[in-house]
């Protein structure tokens, strides 16, 4: 799956455009950034309901190419600027966390192995 597919599946709106052809292999859905940081997988997308700059910094440390804000949440300009500098795509979807994760899972994305 690539970032573009995620936008299609989640009927998402692109808030900040990075590389839309970046390959995405796994997904992680969480509002706790430390839980995200405990999960290391290559080429992941982060789904979150948390809207603050640390979401982008967490994605940066994890080499994530894309962040999805669920439930229609809109990041502010400071967050968008941070993502732009780091070439990270920001998407917002009107779906809630559970549904957004479910749709991506159905679309073929895995959450990786259980701990």
């Amino acid at each position: 799956m690539v970032v573009k597919d995620i936008i299609d599946i989640l009927e998402g709106e692109v808030i900040c455009e990075g590389n839309l052809d970046a390959e995405i292999k796994t997904a992680c859905g969480s509002d706790m950034m430390s839980d995200v940081l405990a999960f290391v997988k290559d080429q992941s997308v982060l789904l979150t309901g948390l809207v603050n700059p640390q979401v982008v910094r967490t994605a940066e440390m994890m080499d994530m190419a894309c962040i999805v804000f669920v439930r229609g949440k809109m990041p502010d300009q400071g967050i968008i600027d941070l993502a732009e500098q780091r070439d990270i795509t920001l998407i917002k979807t009107r779906y809630r966390m559970f549904t957004a994760c479910g749709k991506l899972y159905e679309g073929g994305l895995s959450g990786g192995t259980a701990v």
């Binding site: 706790m32 950034m33 430390s34 839980d35 979150t48 603050n52 640390q54 967490t58």
Partner: peptide, 15 residues
């Protein structure tokens, strides 16, 4: 509320 303070910081660092 900012997404931290879950008691994972030091364990993650060690990991």
């Amino acid at each position: 509320n900012l997404g931290f303070g879950a008691g994972m910081g030091l364990p993650n660092i060690k990991k």
